[in-house]
Write a protein that binds this DNA or RNA. Structure first.
Lengths: 374, 374
DNA sequence: GACGAATAAGCAATCGATTGCACAATCTTC
DNA sequence: GAAGATTGTGCAATCGATTGCTTATTCGTC
């Protein structure tokens, strides 16, 4: 079924011959040693900024010159075998097509890449078996550490890896009952600020579309919602809490629909992330309910491109790039083991972003609610 | 300025001690050999599906059992050093946060990962120096091949790599005057279908916001626009062609603004990609010009999430996942050198997606055009 | 039952860089 | 000017797996 058009004339064929024989042989330390008449160990030392100081400056210069002339490039594979450090890290995420991950990856890269680390990125698709398999793949490749942005609350495979001494940091989520350092956002503060915002707009009956409870974000945000309601002395109607099974638009629609058909009255929906919120807004629209005029909806994450979608979503901005950077920095400390101890917990501050999807309750009259207008 | 809250009690510190000493020593072939009383070379062969047939079945079974029992995992670094194949490929893209790349990466992964390849992804930021540097990084790491989705039309560094025998495929773009196989979309057909669509809606004066001319997509699409206009016997007003310097919303706005202030009359804008189109629509809106009622705007690529943005953009859908797959398959052929020759060119079919950003010309009266209404 | 072929397993070199240790040359210091 | 300290370089083992070659064993055949 895959229709591929080949429109090249026959004369334009790739002339790549069997790669291996064609591959120009690499310049090695041995070549430089031969060229300069010293031993390869001397060459190795001369080229190592740390060891260099033990070598006569003149020799270093000669070796450096020869290396440049020959176009020497160190073979990291060989070095890695000897030193057991590959200068690469594994990054596990659920799915790169999820908008919040690319900025995180750039954040990670921004600290690791300048130091010479390469990242091997894998998508777990939130599948336990796949995750375990990919973790093995990463370990086989000898990564020096792992940043894991896809852990489940209980995650034996990564816990075991950490136990074995592999440096691991988790991002956005955390593994319960473990020593694994993690970087998360201040879910409590975000949810609390958002709830306060809605209350200030006059909303009394606020629904919550919670995220999956097997992910720490989903669980933390629900707990935060309960706690915030308590702090703000707002009553919580348990019937106004619906739990999604995934963090996506489709589940947002489903949950909103469930809320509406429950017959409960509500004037605002606080969603556990942006995608749930977008789905909820769509579902509202399909029912002829206007957001924000009739029902306010809020998200969480402030994912990219939100500005382009109407109504512009009121949400909680988390530090995406910053989270990546923070996780990378912690991983560095773990890998270099220079700092004997690393804080288990890093909580990044969040920020309320008020846009167009929230509005004051109309006349404070909750009878204009979603459930009624349906 | 980076405010990080550390809220962990002092007792909860990571107990990761210096990673290296703690790291459980790996099980190696030698361990299995000792355990089973055979030579390591025999173990190696027994574990290699190809060589296995040269070993007594009983011995294979014993070795296999010991390997499983000890939890043996092959060290790819060591193997890579010997075989000069790392089972990893480099993937170069301009920027992972650009929405069209994640699906491409998943496409690549979908064919490479099951075969045991890992991908090292790097972002060039379309910077020549950075690109050259990252290319070296990839080569240092001994990648078996490279998929390059960020080449410039003239790109000496990657050309040299290919010359040296490194398998390379370019994606979305192509390097001119080279033997490097490439996978592109059928830009010609896409632009032509889109232009026909606009003409069928009655549009006569159609502007084009062209992409950067140093990228093959920008250049090909502009050429395709000219050619399509010719084929459709549509007049082209060169003043209605504006060239963007980057493929982003900001440039889309700038170009649209330039068009409007040129005083030229137009009823439709065919943009070289979605992001330019989104920017153009925004700029129109700011001027109080309605899309599609007053001016139709079209995109190219059909990037993810377009469905969520109003008006829903009429665009040309390119195969993102499919392009990744195609490039990966070509790279495989190159790397294995089993097929002596590989087609230089692969053109993937595209598809017109008509949504809401295009509409018939109102009464065919071009005086309702953008320039006038401003 | 003997000889050549086929099969199974071991031996050892190799990939390229790193690094502890040995040795040689130079420099202190009294 | 000799003993000891210091410094610069070479030697060789090492990381773990792969693989060409050799050796040992079994088999088949006449």
């Amino acid at each position: 079924m895959q229709s591929i058009a080949y429109s090249s004339p026959p004369c334009r064929m790739a002339s790549h011959v069997g790669a291996q024989e064609m591959l120009k042989k690499r310049i090695t330390l041995k070549d430089i040693a031969r060229e300069t008449g010293v031993h390869v160990s001397t060459v190795s030392r001369a080229l190592d900024p740390v060891e260099r100081k033990n070598i006569t400056e003149e020799v270093v210069k000669r070796i450096q010159a020869a290396a440049d002339a020959l176009g020497y490039r160190p073979n990291r594979i060989a070095a890695g075998l000897r030193t057991n450090r590959t200068m690469s890290v594994g990054v596990m995420i659920p799915d790169i097509t999820n908008l919040i991950f690319p900025p995180i990856l750039r954040g990670i890269e921004s600290v690791l890449e300048p130091l010479g680390y390469a990242s091997i990125i894998v998508n777990t698709d939130s599948d336990r078996d796949r995750e375990a398999r990919l973790l093995d793949v990463l370990r086989d490749r000898g990564v020096d550490g792992i940043i894991h942005a896809a852990v489940l609350r209980s995650d034996p495979s990564i816990a075991k890896a950490a136990q074995d001494g592999l440096p691991v940091v988790t991002l956005n989520r955390k593994v319960e009952f473990s020593d694994i350092p993690y970087v998360i956002n201040d879910e409590d503060a975000g949810i609390c600020q958002m709830l306060r915002h809605l209350r200030e707009l006059g909303h009394e009956r606020i629904a919550h579309i919670a995220g999956p409870q097997d992910l720490s974000t989903g669980q933390l945000r629900l707990a935060a919602f309960r706690k915030a309601a308590d702090d703000l002395a707002a009553a919580i109607d348990e019937d106004l809490i619906v739990t999604a099974t995934r963090f996506d638009e489709q589940e947002g629609r489903r949950c909103l629909t469930a809320l509406v058909s429950s017959g409960e009255v509500f004037t605002a929906v606080l969603c556990a992330n942006d995608r749930l919120a977008l789905g909820a807004i769509e579902a509202l629209r399909e029912r002829g309910i206007d957001c924000p005029r009739q029902v306010s909806v809020t998200g969480f994450n402030d994912m990219p491109l939100l500005e382009l979608i109407r109504p512009k979503l009121t949400t909680v901005r988390i530090q995406q790039h910053g989270a990546g950077r923070a996780a990378a920095n912690i991983l560095l400390r773990l890998m270099n083991a220079d700092a004997p101890n690393v804080d288990i917990e890093t909580v990044l501050p969040v920020e309320l972003v008020v846009r167009e999807s929230t509005a004051p309750v109309v006349g404070g009259d909750t009878r204009q609610s979603a459930a009624r207008s349906n």
